[in-house]
């Protein structure tokens, strides 16, 4: 039995694994689940944007003008647009989880509708925020 204890050859090591993500046909709920995690990770990094803006404002006029110049540039606006969508999408994904938390929306039709609404509403709200942003500035 000695050879059976070599790591990699033991029965528990060579058991078949459950299929990984790429084997499955993509569904709306699966895509929105992945999107929820990716937007969450993006917001984690994006929290630095708020830190940079606040620290620049706290540091004085020159630092603030530099920060405003960057956030107003094409790249800055692109990053902020992505941040806006990530924040709203993650928020709506969270609300979807609240609905599930109270025991509602578990049937197939509701799951599908909620997942699609998450994306549609996050896109619509992002555009709304930016239209308002351009209107007030």
């Amino acid at each position: 039995m000695a050879e059976a204890n070599v790591p990699g050859t033991r029965p528990e090591d060579i058991r078949p694994l459950s299929p990984h993500l790429q084997i499955y046909r993509w569904t709306w709920t699966m895509a929105m689940s992945v999107a929820h995690r990716i937007t969450g990770a993006a917001l984690y990094v994006g929290s630095l944007l708020l830190v940079i803006w606040l620290l620049a404002l706290a540091s004085g006029p020159e630092a603030f003008e530099t920060a405003q110049w960057f956030f107003g540039s094409f790249l800055g606006r692109l990053i902020l647009f992505g941040y806006t969508w990530a924040l709203l999408h993650h928020m709506l994904g969270g609300i979807r989880h609240f609905i599930w938390d109270v025991g509602l929306g578990f049937d197939a039709a509701s799951r599908h509708t909620l997942a699609r609404l998450t994306l549609i509403a996050s896109a619509a709200l992002t555009l709304l925020v930016w239209v308002i942003g351009y209107a007030v500035s």
Binding site: S47, L48, L50, V51, L54, L55, L57, A58
Partner: peptide, 12 residues
């Protein structure tokens, strides 16, 4: 992140 942002708001 929290300390830096809180410090900035309090300083402002």
């Amino acid at each position: 992140v929290a300390a830096a942002a809180v410090f900035a708001v309090l300083k402002i």
